[in-house]
């Protein structure tokens, strides 16, 4: 399994409030949430993002509340993978559980800039910056986590078992 796309780059401590502001939490419809994704940190994001694009960020991505709406909005906006130096732990869980691939890789977070074309191989954990011709070793997902992601979420995965 691979992800391929153009990079949107953010800094430290991107919290769940800027990913999906609380004022939109009266909806749990992924499509509607997607139209407000990253609204309070990057107004242009929803206009520019294309299916398959990749978010790269620095430390503690997804900190704040445990709302699952945050990874749901990112996934529904078409993002194929989030790479960060570190993730806040409940966001990390929620992302995997709803089938949004995420990878921690401090070197990649430093070595990738906005607009770079990047490929992520989930089987090997290798992240390739095609624009700069560099590559980084992120942590590969073990088999059952890959299955969760392929099944588009924990509940589908359990249903398929």
């Amino acid at each position: 399994m691979k992800a391929n796309g153009t990079v949107f780059k953010y800094g430290d401590n991107v919290d769940t409030d800027v990913i999906i502001p609380a004022r939109y939490l009266n909806s749990s419809d992924p499509k509607e949430l997607a139209t407000h994704c990253m609204e309070d940190i990057d107004k242009d994001f929803v206009n520019k993002v294309k299916k398959g694009d990749i978010i790269v960020a620095d430390k503690n991505f997804g900190c704040g509340s445990s709302r699952e709406h945050a990874p749901i909005a990112i996934k529904a906006a078409g993002v194929s993978c989030v790479i960060a130096e570190t993730f806040a732990r409940i966001f990390y869980r929620n992302a995997i559980n709803i089938g949004l691939p995420i990878i921690e890789c401090p070197e990649a977070a430093k070595g990738i800039e906005a607009g770079d074309e990047v490929e992520v191989d989930f089987d090997s954990g290798i992240i390739t910056n095609k624009t700069k011709g560099t590559s980084f070793q992120g942590q590969a997902f073990p088999e059952f986590m890959q299955k969760i992601i392929k099944a588009e979420g924990l509940i589908n995965y359990i249903n398929q078992k």
């Binding site: 409940i90 929620n94 995997i96 559980n97 059952f144 986590m145 969760i148």
Partner: peptide, 20 residues
């Protein structure tokens, strides 16, 4: 440890959870 709602649902259904 604390988790989100999908984890709780899956935990109630299967008695299992994944951890790092």
């Amino acid at each position: 440890t604390g988790v989100g709602s999908t984890d709780m649902a899956a935990g109630m259904a299967t008695g299992k959870a994944w951890f790092k």
